[in-house]
């Protein structure tokens, strides 16, 4: 079968391809890097968790601050009660 012969020739030729001699070294380097990446992740997680905790504490703390109505009204300034504001207002100028 000629088709089979062609197939066999291609396969036999490809079976003779040899990988780079440095391939094992590349594999070992990458497995070491992957291992290192795994350990380096923890500090990042700790920082992210700290930021999240501080943020949540801030929100909770802010929620505890309730301004009393009367106290609130005392700090709101009514523009009309400012002395001599009439001089600067078009509505009352004559």
């Amino acid at each position: 079968m000629k088709t089979q012969e062609l197939l066999d020739k291609l396969i036999d030729a490809e079976k003779n391809i040899v990988p780079d001699s440095e391939l094992k070294k590349k594999i070992l380097t990458e497995t070491t890097e992957q291992q290192h990446k795994h350990y380096v992740l923890w500090p990042k997680l700790a920082i992210a968790a700290s930021i999240a905790i501080v943020f949540m504490l801030g929100v909770k703390l802010g929620g505890k601050f309730n301004v009393h109505e009367a106290a609130y009204s005392s700090i709101v300034i009514d523009d009309n009660k400012i002395e001599n504001l009439d001089f600067y207002s078009d509505a009352v100028y004559e």
């Binding site: 990988p19 590349k26 594999i27 990458e30 497995t31």
Partner: peptide
């Protein structure tokens, strides 16, 4: 060859 080497690397990792 180069693609096969990439695959070998990925497999062993």
């Amino acid at each position: 060859k180069e693609d096969a080497e990439d695959i070998v690397q990925e497999v062993f990792v």
